[in-house]
Amino acid sequence: MNIFRLTGDLSHLAAIIILLLKIWKSRSCAGISGKSQILFAMVFTTRYLDLLTAYISLYNTSMKIIYIGCSYATVYLIYAKFKATYDGNHDTFRVEFLVVPVGGLSFLVNHDFSPLEILWTFSIYLEAVAILPQLFMISKTGEAETITTHYLFFLGLYRALYLINWVWRFYFEGFFDMIAIVAGVVQTILYCDFFYLYVTKVLKGKKLSLPA
């Protein structure tokens, strides 16, 4: 465990909590893509099946349970408790265009052709693109609430910090996982346009709105 990995995990946790609190406090999930949140719930479910088969550490187990729990809670708030505020008309990304190719790729390119390993690979590939419905929704409406941009910032920062963690682990531990690294690079690149807008607009006190 190095500082980049730890701050990456904490950044991920911050993103998840920010989103939950935003929805809970405002009693509204306006501007949030339920589709992205369902994809993230699928990501955590398929990746953390090893909770049942392997013990790594108390930290590892606790964080996995927290991530899964918060993820399902978020989906519940969007599709049940605050369903009336869900902006389904703008959440129109076709998720089958992500899930089907990602599913196929996880069968073709994996470390080991076993059910758990294929599901882990699926979760890594799916996570890389799971934010697309949310970014699509923002591009469609042309704006995002500031709190939603904080959520996206921490979510993007998390994978960027993991990239530094992987460089660290390669140099100091000789460890690398090509599947995670390539997917992590793709995932981080998808946030670059958003990072630019976050720094040039939101951090200067302006609302994130896109030109028409």
Binding site: R5, D9, H12, R47, D50, A54, I56, N60, M63, K64, Y67, H111, D112, S114, E117, W120, Y162, N165, D177, M178, A180
Partner: peptide, 10 residues
């Protein structure tokens, strides 16, 4: 092929 080690990251 790479060895499928336990995935210790989140």
């Amino acid at each position: 092929a790479e060895e499928a080690a336990a995935h210790d990251e989140l």
